[in-house]
Design a binder for these strands. Structure first.
Length: 186
DNA sequence: GCCAACGTTGGC
DNA sequence: GCCAACGTTGGC
């Protein structure tokens, strides 16, 4: 199976690119939509490329790139009655919902906004640019992925303007850890 | 906060 | 199976 590409939505209020960069890895869970579930369960494979999209944000847009580190597996939060996304229909024997793990790859100096995606040549067919598109995981064409990454890398941001302080001592060691929901329900 | 566009639910 | 009501998503 050739490498595929996806756009995954996250609400930064729940889990932002900052959190992701710090954690290095996260599980992307909380999907409670059948079409998205089928994609996670059947199509998403380790090594696939991911555009990390922040929705409900100002501006909404792609904040960076990730890679799938674990393909679809049952979303155990769905049968945890204390969890926000608990679903009584789902059980370990017969899981209704699936999730995947993603690994942090890169962060753009600034977000590639939805408006930019909509006006960029070559992205006319990207699902996320369509009105009313609510799917939380969307397939992305390899060419589209490349264009978005190029736009993101071409950005300048605070990180480039301000000079970075040279790292001192050893890098902070962080264990990629136990998880935080990708999205949160009020 | 507004509100349009979705997806789901449930009465019939 | 239809479809109205309702809850959610998500840009702005």
């Amino acid at each position: 199976m050739p490498k595929r590409y996806w756009l995954m939505k996250v609400e930064p209020e729940s889990y932002s690119i900052d959190d992701f960069e710090r954690d290095g890895q996260t599980c992307w869970e909380g999907v409670r939509n059948y079409q998205a579930r089928n994609t996670l369960r059947d199509d998403v494979r380790p090594g696939d490329g991911v555009l990390f999209y922040q929705s409900n944000a100002a501006p909404a847009g792609v904040a960076g790139v990730a890679e799938v580190s674990k393909g679809g597996y049952p979303d155990h939060f769905s049968w945890d009655s204390k969890h926000d996304y608990f679903d009584p229909k789902s059980s370990p024997d017969n899981p209704t919902w699936y999730m995947v793990d993603i690994r942090f790859v890169e962060r753009f100096p600034a977000v590639v906004s939805l408006a930019e995606l909509k006006s960029a040549p070559g992205l006319e067919d990207m699902m996320v640019t369509k009105r009313g598109m609510r799917l939380s995981i969307q397939p992305v064409k390899p060419e589209e992925f490349a264009i978005v990454r190029k736009l993101g890398r071409a950005k300048t941001g605070p990180a480039e303007v301000a000079k970075r302080k040279p790292a001192v001592g050893k890098a902070k060691q962080r264990k990629p850890g136990a998880k935080k929901p990708a999205r949160k329900r009020k």
